[in-house]
């Protein structure tokens, strides 16, 4: 009996006890989105300096890699369209190589060469597109030119394309690269417990004190969180959803993830979440698996070396790999229909 009383007192005192917060949480408004840098257990000054370093780096990348605001990448695209070769920075060259590799692995479902198609749909616009959708003939005309990353060649810092229809748009993996860069900068400052979340896509390293980081995954069709995963060590969690950017026209919804095969918004998926170490890989693969859809996502995941992935189809059914099923925890009651598919 007395033990029970003491328990009540302990409960009460722990309810009153102040918990030291060791979390440095900073919001940055860069790259046209909200970037959240959370650092656990770092020195105040180091955290501030590192976060400022991240902000500066992301601003540079935004300037250099922007697909439509005039800058280095638009100049490269102009040259490619004119059939000329263009000098590229080491960083741009590296991104083009990685983008080509990821595009090849995905069987072309992830294709950063279709900038013209994205522009045709009106997604090269900060305010988001307003419709109407482009007519099927102009979409077909662009598809016929078959722009692909394999058309590109880099020699001595100079980029040329066999196909003048190639227009680079790093939208499918620039965010991943930016998150990787941010984490690299934090680590240079010996901050080894942190999350960088850029507009909902994140890489988490280390732990939140004595527990792993807890990540909530947004429900594509409802408010709040559908599931959660615990992350520790070094992993990136990326989600591509049809709710992120879209427009409605005459009652039909057109989202921003364009299927390079059809030239129209990919059908069948409402969101795809992938987990891998590098954010750039998680970002590109989330896009590729979304385009692949409920029937082909497993093959694409395997080809891209992704063993943890979840796809929610347009009817709310959840598909996932066994490795994802093992660690994910559904936060909705009742849980949605789930099918585990081995790659």
């Amino acid at each position: 009996m007395r033990k029970a009383f003491i328990l009540v007192l302990v409960l009460l005192s722990s309810a009153c006890g102040r918990q030291e917060t060791k979390l440095h949480d900073t919001q940055l408004l860069v790259m046209g989105t909200l970037v959240n840098v959370s650092i656990w257990d770092g020195d105040d000054d180091v955290a501030a300096v590192a976060t400022a370093g991240v902000e500066q780096r992301l601003r540079e990348m935004h300037r250099d890699l922007h697909a439509w605001q005039p800058g280095p990448l638009t100049r490269v695209n102009e040259a490619l369209a004119a059939g000329k070769s263009a000098p590229v920075s080491e960083e741009a060259a590296m991104l083009i190589r990685r983008g080509s590799e990821l595009s090849r692995q995905s069987g072309g479902l992830f294709n950063p060469a279709i900038g013209d198609l994205i522009a045709l749909w009106g997604f090269h616009n900060d305010d988001g597109p307003h419709g109407p959708p482009p007519d099927a003939a102009s979409v077909r005309a662009l598809l016929a030119k078959a722009p692909a990353m394999s058309d590109l060649h880099i020699e001595d810092g100079s980029l040329r394309s066999e196909n003048p229809a190639v227009q680079l748009d790093f939208g499918g993996f620039a965010k991943g690269y930016a998150v990787d860069e941010a984490v690299r900068i934090l680590r240079e400052h010996h901050l080894n417990n942190a999350i960088v979340n850029a507009g909902g896509d994140l890489r988490a390293v280390g732990r939140h004190g004595d527990r792993p980081w807890r990540i909530g995954i947004r429900d594509p069709r409802g408010p709040g969180v559908i599931a959660s995963v615990e992350v520790e060590g070094d992993e990136s969690v990326f989600t591509s959803g049809d709710y992120e950017r879209y427009f409605e026209y005459e009652g039909k919804r057109y989202h921003h993830i364009i299927d390079p095969r059809s030239g129209f918004p990919a059908v069948g998926s409402s969101s795809v979440t992938t987990i891998s170490k590098e954010a750039i890989v998680a970002d590109a693969s989330a896009t590729a698996l979304f385009v692949a859809g409920p029937d082909a996502w497993v093959r694409t995941a395997k080809a891209m070396g992704i063993d943890q992935a979840m796809l929610i189809d347009d009817k709310g059914k959840v598909y996932m790999t066994p490795a994802m099923a093992k660690r994910i925890h559904f936060e909705v009651d009742p849980p949605p229909p789930i099918e585990v598919v081995a790659p």
């Binding site: 007395r2 009383f5 009540v8």
Partner: peptide, 12 residues
């Protein structure tokens, strides 16, 4: 009841 129980515990 909880109030009384905690208060009696404190008397103890």
């Amino acid at each position: 009841l909880t109030g009384a129980a905690v208060s009696v515990a404190v008397l103890g």
